[in-house]
Design a protein around this nucleic acid. Structure first.
Length: 192
DNA sequence: TGAGTGATTGACT
DNA sequence: GTCAATCACTCAT
């Protein structure tokens, strides 16, 4: 498991890069699921597309807290997305986890998602939340301790590429989306 | 107090 | 390719 210090002292873009190739693990009553992070996006309070841009709110309070905690938000009336809080306490920044390559608990993921195709289990921010069994009960939890955590990098020698973000209407041109090149589990198959 | 919007997905044409 | 589902939050009366 990564230590708390891993999340400290990094810019949100640096953390988004550093998390690629690491494994996200969730231990639950139903079993353990895990997957390697292959796609991320960074959001900062100075970025008008970020939830933290307009200041602290009830919804985004965790983003302004200390780094290494889970920020989970609900959107479009039916979907949750999972972020890792970045930068120092008082700064509203976080890394959105957009896609995972499943490694453990794949049968459990299939059951949760009601989906047999492994490529459709975690290739989207709301999909991986469902597959991993993450819920708003995990909001604000530290991910350097407990049963929801991130490991040391598992993939070596990966090529990281970056480009415009997806699914937002502001500041799309900012190259703050990062992913592992040629990985079939990356979600970004929409218009770039 | 109420209308508009969205860091999405899945079903349907 | 198009569109509905559905709620927390923001902004405008």
């Amino acid at each position: 498991m990564l230590r708390k210090s891993f999340f400290e002292g990094k810019k949100v873009e640096e953390l988004a890069n550093a998390l690629l190739g690491c494994e996200l693990v969730h231990e639950t009553e139903d079993g353990t699921t895990a997957g390697i992070i292959v796609e991320t996006e960074s959001y900062h309070q100075t970025d008008e597309a970020s939830h933290s841009y307009n200041g602290k709110s009830k919804r985004t309070a965790v983003m302004f807290g200390p780094p290494g905690h889970a920020y989970i938000y609900f959107t479009y009336g039916m979907h949750y997305c999972f972020n890792i809080v970045a930068e120092n306490e008082g700064v509203g920044a976080g890394v959105l986890i957009r896609a995972l390559e499943p490694t453990s608990g794949i049968e459990l993921m299939k059951k949760r998602r009601n989906q047999e195709n492994i490529h459709n289990l975690c290739n989207g921010p709301a999909k991986l939340v469902q597959a991993m069994g993450i819920s708003k009960a995990d909001y604000g939890k530290p991910i350097f301790q407990g049963n929801l955590y991130v490991t040391e990098p598992k993939l070596k020698d990966i090529k990281i590429v970056f480009g415009p973000r997806i699914g937002i209407s502001k500041a799309q041109q900012k190259p703050w989306r990062f992913w592992v090149e040629n990985n079939p589990f990356v979600s970004g198959q929409r218009k770039a």
